[in-house]
Design a binder for these strands. Sequence first.
DNA 1: CGGGATCCGTGACGATACTG
DNA 2: CAGTATCGTCACGGATCCCG
Lengths: 108, 108
Amino acid sequence: MPVQRNECPVEAVMSMLSGKWKIPIYRCLYKNNRPVRYSELQRHMPDISKKILTEQLRELERDGIIERKSYPEPRPRVEYMLTSSGRSMIGFLDMMSDWSVQHGWINK
Amino acid sequence: MPVQRNECPVEAVMSMLSGKWKIPIYRCLYKNNRPVRYSELQRHMPDISKKILTEQLRELERDGIIERKSYPEPRPRVEYMLTSSGRSMIGFLDMMSDWSVQHGWINK
DNA sequence: CGGGATCCGTGACGATACTG
DNA sequence: CAGTATCGTCACGGATCCCG
């Protein structure tokens, strides 16, 4: 996904969140509400390949939704967490979820 | 786009609105707030081909977001409008728009 | 451990021509 | 006018292997 500074604000946001694994990543980071390691994300989503996971993380980072911290220890460690900007997306995400439930598209 | 009764409510909604022209179509129908003809939609979005326009309209209709009415007169006429369900999406769409503006992704 | 490099299949999107 | 039918392209997602 390229950077899309679209004229339409809605499309701009949709573009940032479109990507097969971005919502699952977001949910994992939001629920845990703490720095989460790369390998933890992998365990949480067994079906994603490293290439794609890294790709989606890079895009979320580029768009200011998550933050990446690298600790170059002997055993390399990388942690991801939502930025405050990213956290603030929960407003419309919750509304989308409610809409979905109310209109019978989902069980949960 | 296939029907995606995803386990995740957010992804379900995203799936319904993902499609290059769905937001533009939604905006046109929302702003006008009346039945809009097929040809009018074409004029409003000159860069979309008939095949794609029809495709996106069919998906929006299938997902209960818009309604299609056909008047088989000598000069065939087809009108589209948002369902009440579709109209109620404006809640989170407006929030997305506001978020986008607040976080400096857009001018408008 | 947390990636990057390479190759590849598939499906969204589009151009164009035709039709009831 | 409001669509189908057909064909082509391209980029997203994925499998696999390699690296510091």
